[in-house]
Design a protein around this nucleic acid. Structure first.
Lengths: 216, 216
DNA sequence: AACGAATCAGACTGATCGTTCTCCCTCCGT
DNA sequence: ACGGAGGGAGAACGATCAGTCTGATTCGTT
């Protein structure tokens, strides 16, 4: 937090908004839709209407700007959109898990579908030691943590494995949507439904009932 | 076919193989592991040990070289490896479908795991009109066609939807493996198993028995 | 021996990359 | 009124990009 001491009544007049905000908005749109390597600093400058030096005053390098983009992506996409929408659609953890694909369905059919920036960045920057690659994977882990919490709340035994499986369905459907399959979310949800049923059916002893009937 | 009139005893001596072959081998390794945009012509020249002009004699542009790489990728990865391995492990279409993830399991645990170049290229070149993007998606369609044939042979009713679902599991597991989950193939296979059981159980009327019990 | 085609080696072009620098203007707090 | 900071416009940097050109060398074939 604390975007360089942002107290009220501090905004620059030129251009309607603060320069840093305009830069991040332009970077967000461009990086999300065209990827990292295909977007140059010049394109971000042009789209934000900001001076060259102003960009480098707020972000020390392109890498810093990319990392800031990913941070904002988690804020806007993961938290404010995906998790928020899922929680809003149901209070039941099982229904929330399935709601992920309802939310995805609307996403896949939206005109400006951009795919998952975390996946894109991780696959685009192949070096595992690169901070950008590491950031992409770490934000994917946070999504998986959200799924794991839901699975645990739903009384699923191996919540880790289940969350990873659910995430595989999510990521696979996103790639399929990028290929052009607008029904990818529904197809994934079909499998997810029977996977969830199976996870609940195979290990009913794991659900909290009375005591703990666990082995020995 | 016909790599510029390749009759026996025609090979250039310098470097052990024909120049075109060395270029394609270098491009294959570099593009598959580092992506398209991150690999420059200079890197391919250096790794192939070929002269600059020699490369442009065989490939008119970088785009042409990328398209040749994808074509070879389908030959080596899709046909000679994936489909060949799957067919070798079983003759039963259902077992062949499941064997995909056995093959993937070995792939995910191999040291130089490079991911799926068709997915990578499609996500890296976001413009759907770009020939490279189109090539990537078209080779993914061919993989799906292979799955659809297996599904049809297995007597699954909606083979198209089933193949797309299977492909979602495959692509999702590949992305998960790129994140570092070496057990991604096993996780996907667990879901695939119950999905296959469900597809066979829900529509037993669709299997060829005696006559055709189809509606009206 | 001689020829042409293929390859090699490297300079070179123009464009673009990320980044730095300079100069000027405008604002805000004092 | 003044100073300093933030921003705008643009030149310029060195590096790299894809692609072209030249000239010498080596090959297979005759």
């Amino acid at each position: 937090m604390a975007v360089t001491e942002a107290q009220p009544g501090n905004e620059r007049v030129r251009g309607g908004g603060k320069a840093r905000e305009r830069i991040l908005e332009a970077a967000y749109d461009l990086f999300a839709h065209r990827g990292i390597q295909a977007v140059g600093i010049d394109a971000i400058i042009a789209h934000s209407g900001v001076a060259r030096q102003t960009l480098y005053r707020h972000f020390s390098s392109k890498q810093a700007l990319v990392l800031a983009f990913l941070e904002r992506r988690e804020e806007l996409w993961t938290k404010d959109w995906l998790q928020s929408e899922v929680k809003q659609r149901s209070a039941d953890p099982e229904q929330r898990l399935l709601a992920v694909f309802d939310v995805f369905d609307g996403w896949f059919r939206s005109p400006g579908f951009e795919g998952c920036s975390f996946i894109n960045v991780m696959l685009e920057i192949t070096d595992p030691a690169d901070p950008i690659h590491r950031a992409g994977t770490s934000y994917l882990v946070k999504i998986r943590d959200f799924l794991e919490d839901l699975a645990r709340s739903a009384g699923i035994a191996d919540a880790d494995n289940f969350a990873r499986q659910w995430h595989i369905l999510m990521k696979g459907s996103i790639v399929a949507a990028a290929e052009g399959d607008q029904d990818a979310a529904l197809r994934a949800q079909q499998i997810a439904t029977i996977a969830l049923r199976d996870a609940k059916r195979l290990e009913p002893w794991s659900r909290p009932l009375l005591g703990k009937p666990s082995p020995h």
